[in-house]
Design a protein around this nucleic acid. Structure first.
Lengths: 152, 152
DNA sequence: CGGAGCCTTCAGTAATTTCTGAACGTACGG
DNA sequence: CCGTACGTTCAGAAATTACTGAAGGCTCCG
């Protein structure tokens, strides 16, 4: 427990997993720092040290994590440095961002349906696709409600 | 309707969307052919023509779509060419493949928890993460049951 | 059994993505 | 105010990923 090396390994593996799930590599590694730090908040400089990465890449990783709402900038505690921390509900947010993909699939299917005649096999396939994603999109809010209820 | 150019555009846009969702580019374009073709099944050669891509890249795209269960090889209809088609339930399959990602996140969280003491903020964060993905993983089967029921 | 057509594999190349480093902007502290 | 410490942006370099084309294998047909 609290073995530094083990922890570093676990963090990097988690980052790898996030990357496979579609997140950019540096953003994933940065997110892992926010998860694994033993402090309540973190500065860009600390991330740079911990990841041994350039200031530039860390800066853009922070920017992208901020933009999707996974971390937040803390009201500056008098310091010159900006402090950031993982937001509550970050995981639900990450999951919700899949909604955008589903929405896009739905629209793509609709566009395809509009180009096919109703007897065409393509019309049937695209309609099936459309129905599925429409169903999914409808279920997600309910799902997250259940989560909020269960977790308090 | 059935405007060839419109259809091509819709197919390529759908492929783009799939790519953004994490699918490899050529696999996505190939899947789009399976969706939009007006035939019941398709051969590798037809995909090559339609996408104006090399035999090699189409071959590997087909291989990967087969491996995730989105398309199937048809019992050879006497022809020398292999015929493939979109599988029933392809979309549910595609969605389910997200399970693997969720499972991996769960394990990554568990590994992290094991490296932290219970007073450590990291311990709390990792536990929250773990709980969320555990919840998700449990919900997905139910979700798909509802889909099967609704769609018949 | 030999030829032809189709598909697969793989090494090399092309394209894209990601990272770095330097120059610039900003704000705090003295 | 000036000097210093951070943070950001952006052009170029490095690394990764994806595609092509050629060689090889398999199967069907004559």
């Amino acid at each position: 427990m609290t073995d530094r090396h083990e922890q570093w390994l676990a963090a990097e593996r988690l980052a790898l997993t996030l990357t496979e799930g579609g997140m950019q590599r540096m953003a994933a590694r940065t997110l892992a720092v926010f998860l694994f730090t033993d402090q309540e908040s973190v500065t860009a400089g600390e991330i740079i040290d911990r990841l041994e990465a350039s200031a530039g890449s860390v800066s853009s990783a922070i920017k992208s994590l901020l933009s999707v709402g996974l971390i937040e900038r803390l009201p500056a505690p008098g310091s010159r440095r900006e402090h950031y921390q993982l937001r509550d509900n970050a995981w639900a947010t990450l999951f919700t961002s899949q909604n955008a993909v589903i929405q896009a699939m739905l629209q793509a299917a609709a566009a395809g349906i509009a180009t096919t005649a109703s007897g065409d096999p393509a019309h049937r396939r695209l309609t099936e696709m459309h129905d599925f994603y429409e169903f999914l999109l409808g279920e997600i809010p309910t799902l997250l409600d259940r989560w909020r209820q269960q977790s308090g």
